[in-house]
Design a protein around this nucleic acid. Sequence first.
DNA 1: GTAATAAGTGTATTTAATACACTTATTGTC
DNA 2: GACAATAAGTGTATTAAATACACTTATTAC
Lengths: 224, 224
Amino acid sequence: MTKPTRFLDPTVTVDVVIFTVEDGALKALIIKRAREPFQGSPALPGGFIRRGETSVTAAERILADKAGVKDVYLEQLYTFDEPHRDPRGPVFSVTYFALAPRDEIRIAETAETQKPRFSPVSALPKLAFDHNNIIGYAVERLRSKLEYTNAAYSLLPKSFTLTELQKIYEAIVNRDLDKRNFRKKFKELGLIEPTGSKSKGGRRRPAELYRFKSRKPRMLKKFF
Amino acid sequence: MTKPTRFLDPTVTVDVVIFTVEDGALKALIIKRAREPFQGSPALPGGFIRRGETSVTAAERILADKAGVKDVYLEQLYTFDEPHRDPRGPVFSVTYFALAPRDEIRIAETAETQKPRFSPVSALPKLAFDHNNIIGYAVERLRSKLEYTNAAYSLLPKSFTLTELQKIYEAIVNRDLDKRNFRKKFKELGLIEPTGSKSKGGRRRPAELYRFKSRKPRMLKKFF
DNA sequence: GTAATAAGTGTATTTAATACACTTATTGTC
DNA sequence: GACAATAAGTGTATTAAATACACTTATTAC
C-alpha cells in the first residue's frame, strides 16, 4: 500500500493487564524489561504485533507465553498514543485486560521478560512507559464491569465457596460487603449452583461448594 | 526506530461517529467516499493520522473539517483491526464518537468526502469497510453512557425545554419515558436550572427554558 | 369565546437496597 | 467426650428508588 510520508506511520504494540486475585487482593502481572528502553524497569507484558496477527491474537499469545493460560476472559481496553509515551517515537499501544484464576496461571520467564510476578494493584512500583496509567484505567474498567456482568467467574476456580466468591468481589471493589445480602443477591441471580460436595480441612464448619452454571460472559441488571 | 520485518506494520486511521439528534431521531454523520477503496460508498468520516497528530487530534480535525465544531464531547470508542476489514491490507482504525447539538453543526463537503448528511442510526445504508459495525458499537456505548452520566448536555443547545430534553433521551434509548417521572428525576439531580425565560411561538402554552449548570462530563448514580 | 396544543404537576404502589446478630457444623485440644 | 475455636449459614424489617397513572393550565389561532 502506498502512502505519502506526510502521514504518521506509528509502530503498534499490544500490552496486556493480566488480573488475578491472590491472598484476598487484586493483582496484576508485572515483568522486568530485559531491553532498552526502560531496561530493568518493571512493566506490563507486551510487545510488537507480528505478521499475521491481530491485536487480539497477539494478546492471546502474550497470555499463553507469560501466564500459561488460554481461553480466559480477554477484552480490549483502550488505545494509548500520547506522543511521548515511548522515547523511540510514536508508538500506539492497543491494550487488553485479562482475568484468570490464580491456580490456573503458570508464570513463565522469557528472554525479554524477566522475573514475572503478581503485584497488588494497590501497591505498584513505578512502571515503564505509561503502564501505571494503563493499569489504573484497567482497574476502573474492571470495577465497573463487575457491577453489571458475571465476569467474576473468570477469576475463580471451577468450584468455590460463597465466602471465596465474596472475597473476590471485596478485593476488586475494595470494600467489605454484607455476608447475608451478598449471598441472597447471588443466589437469586441464578448464576451458580451447588456442586453437592463440601470444602474440607481446617478447624471449622465445611462450606458448600458452588460452580458457575455457565462460563459465558453475560450482562446483568446490577450486582451489588 | 529499527524494527525487523517479522513484525506487523499496520496503517493506522481514525474514524469518527458524529452523533446528533434531529427530528426526534438519533443520527450519525455519513459521507460518500470520493476515492477507492469503496469509491462512491457511504462511510464514516475519517482518514489517516498525520505527522504530529495523535488519534485524538486527528479526530478533532475531522470534527472541525466535516462538522464545523470543536470543543464537543469526544471519546475513544474502540480499535478495529480485523485482518480483512480494508482490502488494501492491515489497517487499524482507532475510532471515536462525538456528540454535538444539531444547531451548532455546519456540515461541510471536502474533496475526499462528498455529500455529507445525517442518517438515522435506525436506517443506515450499507457502509464501506466495517463501518456499520462501528456505528452499532458506538450506539450501544452511547446508550449505556447516558444511563450513568450527564453526557446528554452535549446534544442540546445552550437553552432547551424539558420536553426537548426528554425527546433526546427517548431518541437515544429508543423508548418512551414517563413525563412526570422524567421531570422529577431530572430536577432532583440538580444538573439543570431555569434560565428565567420561556419558549415562544406556536399555538400552545410556552415552556420554561432550562440550561445545564455545568457542561463538564460527570458520573451519576443512575438516570432512568 | 372557543378549539387546539403542549406544558405542567403529585401520589400511591412496587421493587430493590440496606442494615443488622445469632445458630450451626466441624476440628483440635485437654 | 466436653469445650474452645473457627468460619458457615440463615431472615426480617427498614429505607430508598423506580414505576404507574390523569387531569389542569397557559397560550395562540380562528
